[in-house]
Amino acid sequence: MKLNQIIQILDAEILCNVKDESNVNITMACGADLMSDVLAFIKSEALLLTGLTTPQVVYTAENSGVNVVCFVRGKKPSRETVDLAKEKKIVLLATKSPMFESCGKLSKNGLIGCSEVSKQ
């Protein structure tokens, strides 16, 4: 699924898009507020949906090879988090949709979870 399709489905705002990545293909997603869970289970190049907005979300993304993070339920990160994402070249999105609904919308449109990738 193309990133701009995801932006459309979630009606998401782009908070940081260092290079225009809207054509990038996203093959899977992971939704969690616990960064240790993310570090344990997420796969490289997945989309991360989270309600947490600290700079550690950006570090988690960087270290686990995640290029796109979407903040759910209308949460907005601090300027520090956005600046850090710019530096690390991580795309940040924000949607008003809560976690369950965001995941549901994406899943309904055919985006799969990280654990489903190896099953294919």
Binding site: D33, L34, M35, S36, D37, A40, L52, T54
Partner: peptide
């Protein structure tokens, strides 16, 4: 935990 860590996964 509110910062997304300390859930016994580290």
């Amino acid at each position: 935990r509110e910062l997304g860590f300390g859930a016994g996964m580290g």
